[in-house]
Nucleic acid binder design. Structure first.
Lengths: 261, 261
DNA sequence: ATATCGTGTTCTATTATTCGGAACTATCGT
DNA sequence: ACGATAGTTCCGAATAATAGAACACGATAT
């Protein structure tokens, strides 16, 4: 017989099995066989075989009481391996630490994955007024690039054609009180980010959350990551904060960059 | 044809595909097709098909220069979903934070997975003398239970037959200067942990690293997690530290337990 | 109590899907 | 230039996956 219909040379079973894993999200942590089967348009028996395989390998666990399934600790190992593979994270760790020590604010290191930004390390600032995200955002979290400081720092330095294609694919949803939902306004802002070397998020992702980010450039010139400091709301003007924290932030980004291959 | 030889009713393709993902470890972050094929005893063409599938789904990435593969960011999403499914982590977060604020030391929350302990949350203490593990250990890290404070707190409250079967399966490898490598000595210590409600790690996992842990009991009485504080080496005697920190630690563990279903 | 529905689970004949050898191409070091 | 090794593609053979039906169990409704 011919190879798989559309994706030539791809493994259907593996694809389906992974789809099962991906059906579990932070919002839907336990799922039953029938639920999964329906969601992925598979028969119950097929779904069960995959689930049994995943369970026997430790990627899923079955709840004794409800007989439903949830993600197993084995998955954490994989995630951990991924993080470890990002040597950038290790190189950056002491610099992030220092940034938080000098500014008092939570600092983050993020990379871009397509239209999103992924948090790959964070150092929490002094305990104080937390906003909601302080708890929700964890290492590994994914947030839309267009409404975050690190995201804009990363987008701004993308080659123009790539940026255009990317922006065409995303919808600029209103996430916070000042989210930029107009494509041209966003493009103008990204141009400014390129000029100043700093990106800003002023309650664009969530109320009361502001942040300033700087890009980390590899020797090749390519922007490979971004560092930010998250600032809980205060009466201080954003421009004042940028003046105060910008140089420190850029120095940190440069220090990290200096250690990247 | 009959179903798969040994594991009846399991999916070979899924098993193999996941084996490929698991071949990537923090120590081996990039692998080529031939390397993988050899390691898993598969042909290159079969391996390539799985790898292509994983790549098209974002679980692997191909390095443009070397043509080798590494784990993709998609894997992080899974790990994050797993962490989120551990509601325990959320409940415990503020208490961990408080524990670190009052003691000044790094505190950790861990659960057991078979013979290992998995770190599911951590709050770093004041910057100061770090030992090696401070950087190596991350949320998601896995360490052997027998030579860690949290591990011993978790093992101690296991039903005796389960504990025996588990200990038979592990080798008590010397990891730090004071690792307990004798099974009877370990059993005696676990008995003491049951009496005092506190477990101790005095340079058993790594030089200069000491920790004290307390078990978190669900209402059912079952020990579901353990909290610890990690203490960089100091001339203070371990027993003195236990007297000083023990009550705070147990109070924290109880506060967390009170919020568990 | 009894019936009904919905679970998760097991079985099996059929066939679509995966398998692996061989051929192809690109890159590297000699 | 050359050989060696890498990743990649092809295609017929046949294995491993498929889906339907039947089972066992529990919860709910009658």
């Amino acid at each position: 017989m011919r190879q798989a219909a559309d994706g030539a040379g791809l493994s259907q079973s593996l694809e389906r099995g992974l789809a099962i894993l991906c059906a579990f999200t932070p919002g839907r942590t336990t799922l039953g066989i029938s639920e999964l089967a329906h969601e992925l348009s598979l028969t119950r028996s097929t779904t069960h075989r995959y689930v049994a395989t995943l369970t026997s390998l430790g990627f899923l666990e079955q709840d004794d009481a409800t007989r439903k399934y949830r993600l197993g600790p084995r998955v954490l190992d994989l995630g951990f391996s991924t993080l470890a593979s990002l040597e950038l994270r290790e190189l950056a760790a002491p610099h992030l630490r220092r940034l938080t020590d000098t500014t008092g604010h939570t600092s983050n290191l993020a990379i871009r994955d397509d239209t999103d930004v992924i948090l790959i390390d964070r150092v929490r600032g002094r305990p104080g007024r937390y906003h909601h995200l302080e708890f929700t955002l964890q290492v590994g979290s994914r947030i839309p690039a267009y409404c975050s400081a690190t995201g804009k720092a990363l987008l701004a330095h993308l080659p123009r054609p790539d940026l255009d294609r990317l922006l065409d694919r995303i919808e600029l949803v209103q996430r916070g009180p000042h989210t930029k939902t107009d494509k041209n306004a966003l493009l103008a802002e990204l141009a400014q980010v390129r000029r100043t070397g700093l990106a800003v998020n002023d309650e664009e992702l969530e109320t009361a959350l502001r942040a300033i980010a700087a890009p980390v450039r590899a020797r090749s010139g390519e922007v490979v990551a971004a560092v930010n400091v998250a600032i809980p709301w205060s009466p201080v003007a954003m421009s004042e904060l940028v003046n105060r924290l910008g140089p420190t932030l850029q120095a940190t980004a440069n220090d990290i960059a200096a250690r990247v291959i």
